[in-house]
Design a protein around this nucleic acid. Structure first.
Lengths: 227, 227, 227, 227
DNA sequence: AATGAATGAGGCTTCATTCAT
DNA sequence: CATGAATGAAGCCTCATTCAT
């Protein structure tokens, strides 16, 4: 694993999603509204975001939102659905990475993208907060989490690295659980960072933790320590 | 680690905090209000909780809250302060545990207390969400986190177990960071659990993860697997 | 007066208006819209009916309504005009009845028609309510009322039954006024009936009152009581 | 029945209710709000009256209304309840009149009071309109109507005038039904009168009709015609 | 100290109306 | 001629905050 890999990963984020999205003119109205909504939600939280905030961010009138969403609750739900899809996409991308380490790097750095972070950390924390009092959201989040964890469990089970390594008597499932706990924990920490911190800086920190975790879980003692 | 240890940990929660607090009659009004506030905040979140909710929960009038707090913002801040103190108490208690494992168990199960969890997971997630848009809260949370991490770093550095163990080339600080990431991640997961889940069940799950993590970080390969 | 008469009256409603109106394809758009409007108005009232309700009921777009009516107010006005015409038609039909009693029966049962009551009681009550705050509507309703009353006054004046009868020292005009008061009062009562009540049941009740009134006004004491 | 009686009746309305009501300062808030509400409702109708209209008329803030009523619907309901009580009071007053004619006069002129008409005709018409689409209101109106009719049926049954008179083979119940139909019908007509018409003028017209009706129903042919 | 009545700004939502297609 | 997306004003309601008692 060298600096070259890092660059490659970085490109895979920046190059893939951006090109086919022209600013957002012909983009479906629902999508446009959700795009505006996540900006507001990440900035102010669900319940401090007013419908006016969203409409202003989207550059449309308030009333128009109601042509696409029954009410504010529905916007939040749709937002949660969108998040679900993005997480699943992310998982898919992680699955296709050439190595387990790179898979983890993808998962851990999804929110560190200058232009279109797949995962806005503040939004996700808010989503969990909402889940604690909205059963529908809780179900949805639990589901996407389970799917993701299953995916990573699978990844680990198939991974030659993982097999070789002494996995400390932990099952792939347990390893996956630990990995996701760390990922959530790091996301939570991310919201404490000053807003000025760049995506690149966040990414650097995340990669450090990712590699540390990877070494811990999948490197045998005999091998020379990484880096 | 036996059933006895478990009981001991449990007592350390229930016995310690209760005695010096006679139910809450002469108890300072501020404390009474904060007590009511956290119930509401955990149930509904900061911004869905109205001042009336708090006054009703406390059994006093709305106006009275304003005699003790400048405004709602101040209640949230005071709440965050109180949380800070509780976390620091928790750290203190963890420091005094006879072993590193037990220290970790204390840290990981603070929110699994039937009667008065020191740490309400929903509240903490909300606090982080708030931190993402309120610099004062962010500073405070960052500070308490740093203090806690420093404490655990120190604990690890002093721990004979840790020293003996091959710590995979990770510094005590890095280990501490990982531990807190997992702790936060597990807290976040906790809010997804159905409300019906008992404190005991939550605790069991937390202890499993704690021990798994401890084994991973501090047990050398040569030693026989735990349990 | 027998069952046969009743049937005849009934037919006079169903047979007369329908034929020249082929369902409503080539039917003028205005009429189509008004047809939809009265359904909505009777169901929800003028001001709880939205333009969208009307357009949906008519199976057209909202915008199209504005091609035929300047605004909602204009729809209500046109509706009132339509009502005026229907009342005048009704009067004409009543005039042509073979006897005064039958004339009254027609007037009193206009709103008890299964398929297309000429007079929807809820609508009429709403129209009067509107009249109380909209001078234009008030003028129109007053006018149609006056015309109708004049018609009935005339009918009474010409009626042999009425002449024969001791009319209690009341002029035809006064008798007409009383008749219309009762008619309005019964219409008002009709809106209290449960929606499930059939047109036939309503009609039966109306006929009872009509005959009672007729007996009262136009039967001499000496004659044997009716029915 | 002479002019003297008329004067007496008139006084009985104006003198009785007014004295004990000082403007309306200490008057219960609920009552104050309802007082403002009926003014607005009579002027604009239920659904064109905004909560702001009511608050402005009452000289209070909008929010305060919600301390006394759950929502607008509740204001309308309370208004309907109040109307129920007023009608029952009216009935009581009518019962105590020395003669049947005077009872009827009271019932027919309740809405013709300069300062505080017991019955605002526009409001009542609106109430019936509302009843046609709100079952709760319909039940209430039906109930008060039944009670009133029963009261008058009873009055008729006891009345010596009525017994003497040939009541045309109509039962007291049927007579009562007819009387209330006329009363409702006259109320409905009242909303067509220009707003400028004074209470005195309305009253005069109502008294004419009342006496005409009374003569019709309760005077035997043999007696000399009234007036 | 304590109450809770009162205020009014602000949020969600609806709907009459317009207008580009 | 017809559509329905779009606007924005206005209505209902909540709630933080104040203040007279």
């Amino acid at each position: 694993m060298t600096g070259a890999d890092l660059t490659m990963n970085e490109r895979s984020f920046i190059v893939l999603p951006m090109p086919q999205i022209p600013p957002e003119p012909s983009l479906d109205r629902r999508a446009q509204i959700l795009e505006a909504a996540i900006v507001c939600f990440a900035k102010r939280g669900f319940h401090q975001t007013s419908m006016h905030d969203i409409s202003a961010e989207a550059g449309i009138s308030v009333g128009l939102i109601y042509r696409y969403f029954a009410n504010k609750e529905a916007v939040i739900s749709a937002m949660a659905d969108r998040h679900t899809k993005e997480i699943k996409d992310l998982l898919e991308r992680a699955r296709q990475a050439p190595s387990l380490l790179e898979s983890l790097e993808i998962l851990f750095t999804a929110h560190c993208c200058e232009n279109s972070p797949k995962v806005q950390s503040a939004f996700v924390v808010d989503l969990y907060a909402e889940a604690s009092r909205n059963v529908a959201i809780a179900d949805l989040v639990r589901d996407v989490l389970q799917t993701s964890m299953d995916g990573v469990t699978d990844l680990i089970a198939r991974s030659p690295e993982a097999k070789e390594a002494a996995t400390h008597g932990l099952t792939p499932e347990e390893l996956s659980e630990l990995i996701f706990a760390v990922a959530r924990g790091m996301l939570m920490r991310d919201v404490l960072q000053p807003q000025e911190m760049t995506a690149a800086d966040r990414r650097t920190r995340q990669l450090e933790v990712t590699r540390r975790l990877w070494r811990l879980l999948f490197k045998t003692e005999s091998e020379p320590a990484y880096a």
